[in-house]
Design a binder for these strands. Structure first.
Lengths: 197, 197
DNA sequence: GTCTATATGCTGATAGAC
DNA sequence: GTCTATCAGCATATAGAC
């Protein structure tokens, strides 16, 4: 049975999500219309509703999948044994993973207030799980005596803010390569947590 | 000559700006209508245009005045002589000033993409001036030999990201007082820049 | 699977009465 | 100084033709 000409169910869905990602990151969720997304994909606005129930779930899915992928990627890493080495691993992982996905990161931070309360709570749970992965490293290091912070929870949030900040200034082809950025930040992170050596 | 009843030119202007500040911070610039702002103030939408030429300049003025006030407040500080003491002063100033103005800070970071190109350039110049104030402290400290960072520009951006991050988690009546937050962050900042002592 | 057409309502901004 | 009325356009989402 030949498919009807113009049917692309297998690729239109991903293309809609990709267009929404790009447009939401550039102009903001509230400023982007379903018509704009449809135009970017090359279909009419009505066709979008075959792939998403509404605009809100388009946003939610983007944020949810980003955080789920982030957690899975960290979980999949072969972990260093001692806390300082694992903190270096986290620093490198966080910077490189986030530099590779600027649009996803931007949306995940900027569009929280456009989520419905239920969706917001769901996203915050995922973000909390990621933060907890770092906090556990800091707690282990304190127990080992290989690092020292005044408050492990606050240090966690401070380090993540510092590391994610790379995305606000990094530009491809700039003064530093991604690897040099990692080196520079690792030196600061190591000092911040008072790591030995 | 008695004023006409319902005339409040001296207070309506500030009230419009206050309402816009609150609503933009809560829901985002693009998601807030001029009618919502008018309703919050208690006037009709048309009356807003006696005080602002359009929605864009309402946003720009909020961001511009915030950054101008921030720079003026830092310039007005009686400065510590040596770099480490001045860095502690900056840390305290930045955290407390920003904690006092969560809505202004939120807008100044989140609504950059909703500025026209000219307005964006103007705001970025002001932000850059503030960053330069911190970078100068770090450079002086390096020259004195009292602190050490791998890259003064990147350290500047890293520290500002770390310190401004307080606004994302701090809640009044929480575990720590503003003063304890300052102490905790100063300990980390001091380590980050490898300060002596 | 995609289209056109449409419903219902809101948008920023202006004109002119009071 | 504020109001009412209005313009022209765009919003999300759905119904039904093909």
């Amino acid at each position: 049975m030949a498919r009807k000409s113009g049917s692309h169910s297998q690729i239109t869905g991903p293309r809609i999500r990709q267009a929404a990602l790009r447009l939401f990151a550039r102009h903001g969720y509230a400023a982007v219309s379903m018509r704009q997304i449809a135009q970017e994909v090359g279909v009419q606005a009505g066709a979008l509703y075959l792939y998403t129930s509404d605009k809100q779930s388009l946003l939610f899915d983007l944020m949810h999948d980003h955080l789920t992928d982030l957690l899975a990627a960290w979980d999949a890493q072969e972990k260093q044994a001692d806390a300082v080495a694992r903190l270096e691993q986290f620093t490198r992982f966080h910077i490189l993973y986030h530099l590779d996905r600027p649009d996803e990161v931007f949306i995940a931070y900027m569009e929280l207030r456009n989520l419905t309360p239920d969706n917001f709570a769901s996203i915050e749970r995922l973000r909390r799980r990621y933060e907890d992965a770092l906090e556990e490293i800091l707690r282990n290091g304190q127990a080992e005596g290989t690092l020292s912070v005044p408050d492990s929870r606050i240090a966690t949030l401070a380090l993540i803010a510092m590391l994610t900040g790379v995305n606000t200034w990094y530009r491809q082809g700039g003064r530093l390569s991604p690897d040099e950025v990692v080196q520079t930040y690792w030196e600061m992170v190591r000092n911040t947590v008072g790591a030995r050596g």
